[in-house]
Design a protein around this nucleic acid. Structure first.
Lengths: 144, 144
DNA sequence: TTACAATCAATTGAATAAAATTAAATTTTA
DNA sequence: TAAAATTTAATTTTATTCAATTGATTGTAA
C-alpha cells in the first residue's frame, strides 16, 4: 500500500458511475435513433408526458438540468412539434411547457423502450432495483 | 398500475446513474478548478500518472472514452505541459503518451483530492464500497 | 414612485461526445 | 513481389452539454 494507491483509477468510486452512465446511454442510442431523440431529449419527454404541463424551472429541477442545457433541448423538441412553450400570463419570467398532440402520439410508440433496455442490460431485476434504491438515496442526499 | 408507469422518470434505473454522475462531477469542480483540470482531464491524468507511459488506444479503453473525446483532452493536457505525445517508431499510426516532469510534480499536489471528495460525499465507506463493486460488475459485463 | 434585490430563462464560450474522414499498416490477390 | 482491399488508428467536424454571464421582469423597501 503506497501513498499513490488512492489516486489510482480503480480506487475512484465516482469513475464507474461516470463510465457506466455513458455506456448505458450508448445502449439507448440505437433504440432512440428511430424516434430522432437523444437520451436527454428522451428523459425530458418522459417528464413532460407524465406531467402534461410543467414549468421550465420544475422540469430542470426534476431532471437535474440547468437552463443552459434545457433551453436548447426544449427548442429542439418544439421544432419537432412534440411540445410547445409559452410564457405565463401572470409572470412573464416563467416559461411553461406543454405536450402537443403529436407529442402524445409519440408516447404510445415509446412505451416499449424500457423493456428493450432491460433486455439489453440482462441483469436480474432484484439487483437493478437495489442499485437504483442506493443511487436515489445518495442523489437525494447530495441535492439537499 | 397503468401502462404508462414504466415510462415515468422515477421508474428509470439509468436516470439516477446519469444524474448522480453529473452531481458528483459538480462536487469535484471547485477542487479541480485550483489545478485548472476538468473531471475528464483529471481521470485521464490519474491513468497517465499510474502508467507513466501508455498508448492512446489503451488509455481510451481504460477510461471508456473514444478517440474523438480523448484527442482534445490530450491536446489540452499537452498545452499545459503535463504530458507529451509522440508517434511510435515501429508503427506510425500509434500515439504514445508520457507524463512530463511538470506533470509528475502536479501528482503530489493532487494526492489529497480523493479524501476531500469522500468528506463532501459524507457517505459510509462500507456503502460506497458495495456500490462501487456493483457498478464495476455491471460495467465489466456491458463492456464484454 | 424610485431604487435595489431576487428570480428566471436565454446566451456565450469552453468542454465533451459521436460521426465522418484521413492516414498508415497489414493482408489478400493478381 | 506489386497493387488493391481491408483493418487499424487518430484527427477533424458537428452536435450536445455545462458553467458563467446577461437581460428582462417581478417583488420589496425607502
Amino acid at each position: 500500500m503506497d501513498k499513490y494507491d488512492q489516486i489510482k483509477l480503480e480506487n475512484q468510486i465516482c469513475f464507474p458511475l461516470y463510465a457506466l452512465s455513458r455506456e448505458i446511454i450508448k445502449l439507448y442510442k440505437p433504440i432512440l435513433d428511430k424516434y430522432n431523440l437523444t437520451y436527454t431529449q428522451y428523459i425530458t419527454m418522459l417528464v413532460i408526458w407524465e406531467k402534461e404541463k410543467i414549468g421550465f424551472k420544475d422540469l430542470g429541477r426534476l431532471l437535474h438540468l440547468d437552463s443552459g442545457t434545457l433551453t436548447p433541448v426544449l427548442k429542439k423538441l418544439e421544432a419537432m412539434e412534440l411540445i410547445h412553450k409559452y410564457r405565463s400570463n401572470e409572470d412573464d419570467r416563467i416559461v411553461i411547457v406543454e405536450v402537443t398532440e403529436k407529442g402524445n402520439s409519440l408516447k404510445e410508440d415509446i412505451l416499449h423502450v424500457p423493456e428493450e433496455i432491460y433486455c439489453k442490460l440482462n441483469i436480474e431485476t432484484e439487483k437493478l432495483f437495489t442499485l437504483k434504491k442506493q443511487l436515489d438515496e445518495i442523489l437525494t442526499q447530495i441535492s439537499e
